[in-house]
């Protein structure tokens, strides 16, 4: 699966956030979507996930057979900025959401969720309440939830925005480990994450179309 953007324009209210933007995002690749604050990274990610309609241009997903389709949230697991979690529930419960929403049996879902927690390095915190986890741990739980959902695409919006340097490093290692598993796009202006990515797409005006 790959994602193609052709001459896309995006509007936030009456303000043009992006005009004539084109890019391609390949499967099994970690792409950093870069740009300064306010450059429209989140808005573009939302459009790429099918949550927003572009004001102009087209966004298309291509299956492995080359069949095009419009983007849809049903194919995307989204890791938001900050920590969206069920704070009173355990880390495992939070990751189970991803697995259960794809129709797995409970036994299967627990196995998948546990594997996802191991993959992001927080399996030892599986039974801890989310409210007791650090920001970095919560962010890794969010990635585990996305992995467990079996969605072919993962978008992460500024995942290190509220993290300290150590947590950012740990998350970068997680992303490096995940980069060959999905079509993975991380909106960020963090140099550590950009370094971890295989490719980068910049939203700086001079870089549009690259």
């Amino acid at each position: 699966m790959r994602l193609s953007i052709e001459e896309v324009g995006l509007r936030y209210g009456k303000v043009d956030v992006l005009t004539g933007f084109s890019a391609r995002f390949e499967d099994h690749t970690l792409t950093a979507l870069t740009g300064p604050s306010g450059s429209g990274k989140t808005t573009l990610l939302a459009a790429m996930a099918g949550y927003l309609q572009p004001s102009s241009g087209t966004i298309r997903l291509y299956s492995d057979e080359g069949q095009p389709s419009p983007p849809t949230p049903a194919l995307v697991a989204w890791v938001p900025q900050g920590s969206n979690a069920l704070s009173g529930r355990t880390a495992l419960d939070n990751v189970l959401l991803g697995a259960l929403s794809s129709g797995r049996t409970m036994t299967d879902a627990v196995a998948v969720a546990t594997a996802a927690l191991e993959r992001v390095g927080v399996a030892h915190r599986a039974g801890a309440a989310a409210k007791t986890l650090s920001g970095g741990e919560l962010q890794r739980v969010a990635f585990a939830r996305a992995l467990a959902s079996d969605k072919p695409i993962i978008f992460a919006d500024e995942p290190t925005a509220n993290l300290d340097a150590d947590s950012t490093d740990q998350l970068a290692h997680v992303l490096e480990a995940l980069r060959s598993t999905r079509l993975l796009v991380v909106a960020t202006h963090d140099p550590i994450l950009i370094e971890a990515a295989q490719t980068a797409v910049s939203l700086r005006p001079e870089h549009h179309g690259h």
């Binding site: 989204w78 969206n84 959401l97």
Partner: peptide
């Protein structure tokens, strides 16, 4: 919390 549900499928 509801966002956690929605964004994970």
């Amino acid at each position: 919390e509801l966002a956690a549900y929605r964004l994970s499928g």
